[in-house]
């Protein structure tokens, strides 16, 4: 059982590392945000799963398990809303103006609307 917990936490640390490296290596705001969702999905889910197994099997504390599940659910619900808000605000501030984007349908449609 101990090995399963360790493996889960190691996997999530690997993805968190990938997120951090991506945040440094990528060049623009949006790509960096993409890399940071790596941390906030599998990076967090792995740690929470490991903590659930640890507190259920090793500690035997079931109220902790329930709290961890609630923590995970709230994390999953609230995280994309913040990500969407930050990305939209960055676009509206004109961060995408001087980037080399493959295509920019949003900008075209915004110009047509004006």
């Amino acid at each position: 059982m101990r090995y399963i917990i360790d493996i889960l936490i190691a996997i999530s640390l690997l993805f968190a590392l990938a997120g951090v490296v991506g945040m440094i290596r990528f060049r623009d705001v949006f790509s960096r945000m993409q890399a940071s969702t790596n941390i906030s999905t599998l990076g967090v889910i792995g740690v929470i799963l490991g903590a659930i197994i640890y507190s259920a099997v090793v500690l035997g504390d079931y109220s902790m398990v329930v709290k961890l599940v609630v923590m995970g659910i709230f994390y999953i619900i609230t995280n994309p809303i913040a990500g969407h808000a930050v990305a939209k605000a960055a676009y509206r501030r004109g961060m995408a103006k001087d980037l080399e984007l493959e295509c920019d349908k949003y900008g075209e449609d915004l110009e047509n609307a004006d």
């Binding site: 990938a18 790509s31 599998l42 980037l99 295509c103 349908k105």
Partner: peptide, 25 residues
């Protein structure tokens, strides 16, 4: 879906794949 996408972005972060960012509709 999450696991597939995570592995994909992790590979991009370590430089095994190139990025082609853009905004689609």
């Amino acid at each position: 879906e999450l696991i597939k996408a995570n592995i994909d972005v992790a590979l991009r972060a370590f430089g095994f794949k190139k990025n082609k960012p853009g905004i689609v509709k």
